[in-house]
Simulated assay, not measured.
Amino acid sequence: MNNLLLQSQSFCDYLQQVRQVSPHTLSNYRRDLDKFIHYCDSQSLENISAVNAHHIRQCIAQLHRQGLSGRSIQRLLSALRSWFRFAIKEQWIKQDPSAGISAPKSPKPLPKTMDVDQTADFMSVDHEDCFYETRDGAILETMYSSGLRLAELTDLDLGNIDFSAGTVLARGKGNKQRLLPLGKIALNAIKQWLSQRKLFAEQDEPAVFISKKGQRLKPRSIQARFNRQSLAKGHPVNPHMLRHSFASHMLESSGDLRAVQELLGHANISTTQVYTHLDFQHLAKVYDNAHPRAQKKDD
């Protein structure tokens, strides 16, 4: 194993053990760094100190020619910058060779969402087995009520739900916690599910959502349930689309971007702006009510 691979592994160990990034995020970092290391191998670069801006630009150009999107290249650049910052800290290099390098721009499509009626229809679960009907119904209601990510839902433990306060404690990216409200419908759905759960749960299993074997549900299992529900309803919906719909409905109703940012657990408000959208009529109404020069004065 050359030094570049060792340095990459050291960085990934740091992300996992110190930064405590999610397995999904860690996998993305590894995949992006592997792309760059593959390029470095073709250039006989065996140490991070041998990498310069020219190599990074050449790698980006090559990946772009191969069809990698601007968004994916931007993510790769972000991974490289984090790696180089770590390398500076470890004194492997003195400066970041990626400074000033940007990815090719690509259009940002609006996230796919459902309207309120479509969401309500998708959430109505009909199953011949009471276990699946109550569990899947509670999963959908919880995700839509609080805008949870898939990983946040699967990580939920019984102690994270406060029925008297109507809240749920979610553990998000970077192991950051946030307290979120749970609506009455979601709370009732969870209570119905818990009456089924106790018949199947393994002893001392803390997870809210479990399989029939009594063990914590994995993200892939929930994705499979979404696929089943999508077939039953006749239109494709994935867990992130439900989160998008939550954000869109909250923003359209309240117009409070900062509040939606807090609910979603976004570190930067720019991320919230990408995940949500307002229609022009709502924007115009907000403008008319808020801008001092937009309001008509009485004669």
Rank of each mutant, 00 (worst) to 15 (best):
residue 1 M to W: 02
residue 3 N to S: 14
residue 4 L to Q: 05
residue 14 Y to A: 11
residue 19 R to W: 00
residue 25 T to F: 04
residue 28 N to V: 04
residue 38 H to E: 09
residue 38 H to P: 00
residue 40 C to T: 04
residue 52 N to L: 06
residue 54 H to D: 14
residue 55 H to K: 07
residue 59 C to G: 03
residue 64 H to E: 15
residue 66 Q to T: 07
residue 69 S to V: 10
residue 75 R to V: 08
residue 82 S to I: 05
residue 84 F to T: 07
residue 94 K to E: 14
residue 94 K to D: 14
residue 104 P to T: 07
residue 104 P to G: 10
residue 108 K to Q: 13
residue 110 L to M: 14
residue 112 K to W: 07
residue 117 D to M: 08
residue 118 Q to V: 01
residue 129 D to T: 05
residue 130 C to R: 11
residue 134 T to L: 09
residue 142 T to D: 10
residue 145 S to W: 00
residue 147 G to E: 04
residue 147 G to D: 06
residue 158 L to V: 14
residue 161 I to D: 02
residue 163 F to E: 12
residue 165 A to H: 12
residue 165 A to S: 14
residue 171 R to W: 06
residue 176 K to L: 09
residue 178 R to Y: 13
residue 183 G to A: 13
residue 183 G to W: 09
residue 183 G to Y: 10
residue 193 W to G: 00
residue 194 L to Y: 10
residue 201 A to M: 04
residue 201 A to G: 03
residue 206 P to V: 08
residue 209 F to E: 00
residue 219 P to W: 05
residue 226 F to E: 08
residue 229 Q to E: 12
residue 241 M to C: 11
residue 242 L to K: 09
residue 250 M to T: 05
residue 252 E to N: 12
residue 257 L to H: 04
residue 259 A to N: 09
residue 270 S to N: 12
residue 273 Q to D: 07
residue 274 V to W: 02
residue 276 T to G: 08
residue 281 Q to M: 04
residue 282 H to Q: 14
residue 287 Y to K: 07
residue 287 Y to D: 06
residue 291 H to E: 11
residue 296 K to P: 11
